[in-house]
Amino acid sequence: MTDRLLELLERKPIVMGDGAMGTMLQRAGLTDGSAPELWNVTHPEVVRAIYQGYVDAGSDFITTNSFGGNRFRLKLHHLQDRVFELNRAAAALAREVAGPDRLVAGSVGPTGELLEPLGPLTQAEAAEAFAEQAAGLAAGGVDFILIETMSSLEEVQAALAGARTTGLPVAVTMTFDTNYRTMMGVTPAQAVQTLHRWGVTVIGANCGNGPKEIERVMWEMAQAKPEGVVLMAQSNAGLPRWQQGEISYDGTPPVMAEYAQRMRALGVRVIGACCGSTPAHLAAMRAALDGPPLAEYHPAFEVPETAAKGATAERRARRAAQRSGREEGE
């Protein structure tokens, strides 16, 4: 099978992804908390229109509406028996809209469960669930699998195993939303190095706390990345705010256009967006990326010193002193 993702990267110096699906669906009326993936069969025209919006905005690939399409997430909606069907439908709709020239990325998100030893899920069970989802996406005609918004490396490992059963290329992005780490404590450097070791070429960050934070994350990845890795970033359009009974994001299209430029300056080659973005944001990013790059790049964040672990060190020292004191006393 030809690797259409690498082929595209050979053709184009910068590849633009797309934007939000979830927040777009919410705007289109998915507000009762039901599964977004169900809309691939109940409201195909809505999903198609969102895909079309990103195609019109100039995205080089569009991402399927299948983020929560694994059996664990679907089980929350009693849809666990429809994994294959819903993923295939997500992919088939996207394929139809993307046509032969644009690529389709099959979105694979976390199970939302904790893997052993923190939780009950085993690697093998997780890998099997991801394989089931990936099979549906492959049947619907995706060009590559995009494992995204991950926070645990163990879960990425399972997702990779599952996705690779299709023979399709795989890209991986993780979410660094907790003090520049994932919520499981993974650093950008750890992510890029580990994933490279596991044979992934396109590696990056998505979602998170908006363009400013992701800039530092991608800077850290760029410092640490092994040769041959292609960096990818898909930032949220700012942060969600609860306003007048609605959730809105504070990142405007000009903010996202500047973010796209900054990503390019850092050497990131696959650039897209995540929650809160719309075709208008992507169109602004397209215009920026079609124009000249930044003349100079200055980080918009404070370049970090080595992380302070003060509180922990102090506590451990106290504990050690107590322990030795007690042993002497005994």
Partner: peptide, 10 residues
Amino acid sequence: DGILFVPEVL
């Protein structure tokens, strides 16, 4: 403060 992460909290 970002010193501990989810695994430790769990």
